[in-house]
Design a binder for these strands. Structure first.
Lengths: 141, 141, 141, 141
DNA sequence: GTGGTCTAGACCACG
DNA sequence: GTGGTCTAGACCACT
């Protein structure tokens, strides 16, 4: 029985979220990878399957999957399904630095008027980062 | 003795920015306050004045000012103009914590697939925070 | 009159083409840039405008434009339009090398059974490349 | 004296490849011919045999063989199997020129936005072509 | 069954 | 007016 069973995705769609649905899916898949819950070679749920699970339109899933494929994160095979791709160094170092700087900028912007001290903000970020790391580490052991 | 001369706003509209123009204005005013360049009681430039300064549509300025008023950051006094409001505890402690958590979440999301280490991300955030603090400190001295 | 007029795109949709319509648009825009017919800062035709010109569905144009934006080739501004972005080094050197190798591979595959000599194939490629270059050069002069 | 033992095909199915499996088989057979590993009169592996060798669906092999037969590259003899056909001038000179031009066009399209110089692209194509030629030459000697 | 494209029409955010 | 998302349904290619 060489048929692969798709890995279930632990993604939740929040209608109140400012991000569009397809972006929530893209981010969700990225998070699942960062957490180590899905690894290269894994088969993702089908358009229709994930659409049914999330009770959204299959085209919306298609849009999300298509962007993931375009970003080189998954490989799609007609008639077979979508597979998590081997991690590649797609973006240039400079581009990645720019994106990080941009993300930091936006984060500071959202945070600045909340009245927290630098240390409070930093420790919150650190907590979130270690949360991800420990989840990934547990899974690998 | 009401202040008659509006404080100039040091805001720059970047057309390449992903944020809409009105959001850039809102953020700009917030930053000016965080840096201490404008303080409670200051008079802000008029709709038309700021629109002319930034060479944008007055409606866009109106939208930005309206959101600032809505957030309790400025008070509009009929016939006089828009004034920076006394800092009020608009947000509850819990609400502020939630907003911080939400901002952190979004930031992690944007950063996660860039392949940076936790330390690299943290130091970048720290750098951005201290940058702001020093600017604010200089002004107060 | 600071209103920008969109640059007309010289794109032709071939229904018999193996590439989907949206891909033909993406490639078309890329070619127009390579030829120097559109340069950074230029305004592209609107969804609806280009859709009307090509007599296709606006969503199809949206898909093409969205991919161009995702690839960092254009900047989209709600309410304003799509602008050609400043050229960035988005892809890593290694990734670009891989893509070139992949393209060469596919090209050889398509060509191998046609019975042409290596020199014939090479000169045909060279001719196509210089065609593009000269068009770009003429435009710049 | 018909040849009874089929020539083994040195074809590798790459799941990460963008081409569908049946196309990989078609291309694979063409490459084997170009390299001189199989010659007119040779017997190809059976549907089921090749399907078993590549661990794929026999229908997929059937589709590939059917396309090869359709292109006049192989002849199927009832009850005997598939044989490599005598090279026929299936395509007119004009048709072949058109196909070459089309392939070049697609290649340029894939390459254009990668930022390589004309010389870099040409040398990469040349390298790939000589690679093939030397393999073919070795076999003939 | 799988991924993927296209159309049509509704709706929202921005200027 | 601009870009952009979502739905619904039809259709195609691949296994």
């Amino acid at each position: 029985m060489p048929l692969l069973k798709p890995k279930a995705l632990n993604i939740e769609i929040v209608t109140g979220d400012s991000r569009p649905i397809f972006k929530q899916i893209v981010d969700g898949v990225r998070r699942e990878m960062a957490k180590g819950r899905i690894v290269p070679g894994d088969l993702l749920p089908s358009y229709r399957g994930l659409a049914a699970q999330l009770t959204i339109n299959p085209n919306t899933v298609a849009k999300a999957y298509s962007q993931l494929a375009n970003d080189g994160i998954v490989d799609s095979r007609k008639g077979l399904g979508l597979f998590v791709a081997e991690p590649r160094q797609v973006l240039s170092k400079k581009e990645k630095q720019q994106r990080l700087a941009h993300a930091v900028d936006g984060f500071i912007n959202d945070t600045i008027s909340l009245g927290f001290s630098d240390d409070q903000i930093l420790s919150e970020v650190e907590r979130a980062l270690t949360d991800l790391s420990t989840q990934s580490a547990k899974r690998a052991s």
